[in-house]
Design a protein around this nucleic acid. Sequence first.
DNA 1: ACACGGCGC
DNA 2: TATCCGCGCCGTGTA
Length: 624
Amino acid sequence: MLTWLARADLQALRNAPGVRTPPVEKHYRSITTLEEFEAEIAALRQAGSFAVDTETTSQDPMRAELVGLSLAHKPHEAVYIPLRHSYLGVPAQLDATLVLERLRPLLEDPAIPKYGQNIKYDYIVLQRQGITMRGLDFDTMVAGYLLNPSRRMNNLEALAREYLNYTPVSYEEVAGKGVRQVTFDQVDIARATTYSAEDADVALLLTQALRPRLVEHQLEHLFHDVEMPLVDVLAALEMRGVIVDAAYLRQMSQHLHVQMESLLQEIFTQVGEEFNINSPPQLQHILFDVLKLPTGKKTKTGYSTDVSVLENLALEHDLPRLILDYRHLAKMKSTYVDALPLMIHPQTGRIHTSFNQTITETGRLSSSNPNLQNIPIRSELGREMRRAFVAAPGHVLVSADYSQIELRLLAHMSGDPVLIDAFRSGQDIHARTAMEVFGVDGSVVDSDMRRMAKTVNFGILYGLSPFGLAQRLHISNEAARTYIDSYFARYPRVQECLDGILASARQQGYVTTLLQRRRYLPDITNANRTIREAAERTAINMPFQGSAADLIKLAMVHLHHQIVTEHLPCHMLLQIHDELLFEIPENAVEEMLPRITETMENVWHLEVPLTVEVGQGHTWAEAH
DNA sequence: ACACGGCGC
DNA sequence: TATCCGCGCCGTGTA
């Protein structure tokens, strides 16, 4: 039995010698005998809920090997069960299969609530061991995120510091850092116990500390009905993965290489010297010193060479276009065509992204390792790229995306009669805005007017300034101001809605979404105008971007529930903010399409209909 | 580690 | 006077 004074108390004594904190005794121990293990199982069942933490050999749950696990059902007590520690002189450990089989009834019982920090990770690790953890009740990372989505880190250490005034033992302290870091199976069991058992304990303590705070912030519905159920859903998406056609990408890579070499020669010939196009400083030198082309935007370190600058220069010189073409090919090749095949999982043959639930300040998900939410689509080459994403044999990919969801939310929240009428009667919303803003009949609206109206519509959601609109549309500031003024004249309730958002942001210090997701905006009263206005744009965007995130998350939860309880032949693969991608057996598509669209469209009752557009095909390019 | 540029919604 | 629309992730070059 290991017992010591809590580190927080030691720190309190050091930092404030006048303050006496009652010492808390901590009881962390490892379990290596069957008798202890059986007693622990009985205690866990008796307690009826517990915190779980797994220790593994990798940060990536799809590649991690289980090394041990910790359990905590009572504050300041926890056990660590080493399973696969491996070092010279390692003591006897319980058999991993035996331990997991005895824990299975507890872990798989939905009536026994489980707590943890980033519990999706543990869920996937255990799922790969054949255990389906049910009753995921409280993820401290998700709770911390909902309480303040702007918090940089929602890791256990940051949360424990903020809510428990306590600093737990860090991973580096037990496993080392840098080149000297060892995998957890090589960590001495006694040291592993101090770390791992504490993590389970802290997760339990944080659960108790954060639960009432969620209620205070009116976040319990969002937490229990959306974000916590979503943990299982995201785990399922990540584990299923998506197939990419490596042979196709290899071919594409060779093709791109040839094109890039040819472009490169043409560029060097035009310039008269060789240089590294990928180096912004070298490119600046060539464009603005050697060729003496006019400079545009400035960056912190010099003159910008980004797309908008090169597009302007392309009007008076041939080189910028070649640079743009080269950049596009280089981007496609390095970021996607060459990188994605390297991410194929050796066992599953698929790519398993990681969906992060606690990163964005608006409530959106993010995707990384690799990011599958920014696969190209807008260029022809981008669409070719999407042909690499394919369905399994006998399956098709189905894409279902919410049409104009943020503008529909604007119609709903503002109650603007013109916007509502436009969506209820199924009109082309950008064409309708063109009619309103330019004061013309529908028959007069041409593609150029529609494009400008589209920019205005999206600009409204971002708090666009006349200056920004002018830049974007290549028109004068005066013209841009006129467009925005006429927009608000025709949609007065939208103006009131945006003013209301700003007023509540100033009054409360935060803005909220449809499902009460909250984002604090301390800069909304900043004396610096640039900073304050940035906060105002953020405030205006958050309710629309965040509510859209709320709704698609809820739809994912509903769909996943149907898929699991009714054993539907359908796998959700990806979420791309307003789109869901599925993999479905060919013979089940007819049955599944209406279920998907109806579930997504009926996820929430708004003043305007939510509509979903679906497509299908053997590749993602065809499905879209 | 940071800046830049660029892909998505 | 200067302003350059919100939210992300990642590759490359430079330090």
